[in-house]
């Protein structure tokens, strides 16, 4: 879910760029050299997730998983998502250099927010963990779509109907992302719980 080049206006592009740089700086500061490997791994997982298409009725929809990245990485998800988006721009031509900042904000701000909101729920095992993971996955998509819509409407008010259409189209993705994030989390918690603490525990 990102915007291509040439759509947004200067104030939105500049605002997104400034917020993205600040967020990346905070994320990098909190990321020490020992955790770069784990972060890079999740950054490429975020990239690969966008290539996974899950069926939805007669069509299919590709995953975003920024909620999952958020709860696994916290603040470090800003540089992780930023790098994945930069690579997508270079390798596929999706998005570009001028909208990179806005796209980072659209994807990473919800990731950080859900890690702050639901992080504690997810650390506890059991039903609460499942609920927290579902909410994190679904909320991240909802917030991303809202940010995307706001960026478009802030550029030109005639985008309002296009933005509304996008918002409605993303609603099923919200449920799917929530469900898949929940299953990924419950699987990780059972099989290799250390992955849930990538960002807090020192790597042995």
């Amino acid at each position: 879910m990102h915007l291509s080049e040439g759509i947004l206006s200067l104030p939105i592009l500049a605002g997104g760029g400034v917020v993205a740089v600040l967020g990346t700086a905070v994320g990098l500061k909190r990321l020490d050299y020992d955790h770069i490997i784990g972060t890079a791994m999740l950054s490429s997982a975020f990239f690969v997730a966008s290539l996974i298409h899950v069926p939805l009725g007669p069509a299919s929809i590709h995953l975003v998983l920024n909620g999952l990245i958020g709860i696994l990485l916290g603040w470090a998800s800003v540089p992780a998502i930023g790098i994945a988006l930069l690579l997508q721009a270079f390798l596929f031509g999706y998005g570009g250099l001028t909208v990179l900042g806005v796209n980072i904000v659209i994807m990473a701000a919800p990731a950080v927010l859900v890690s702050l909101l639901f992080g504690r729920m997810i650390k506890k095992p059991g039903k609460q963990q499942m609920l927290g993971a579902f909410l994190a996955g679904a909320t991240a998509i909802l917030l991303s779509t809202i940010l995307l819509a706001l960026a478009m409407i802030g550029t030109d008010s005639s985008f309002i109907d296009t933005a509304r259409l996008l918002l409605i189209a993303q609603l099923p993705l919200m449920l799917i992302e929530g469900t898949i994030t929940m299953f990924v989390l419950s699987f990780l918690a059972r099989v290799q719980p250390e992955l849930l603490h990538l960002n807090s525990a020192p790597t042995p």
């Binding site: 791994m41 999740l42 997982a45 996974i52 898949i180 299953f183 990924v184």
Partner: peptide
């Protein structure tokens, strides 16, 4: 969706 969730989880673990 459960299968995809486990697939992604397993991918993460193996890649990690």
């Amino acid at each position: 969706y459960r299968t995809y969730g486990y697939l992604i989880g397993m991918t993460l673990i193996r890649s990690y």
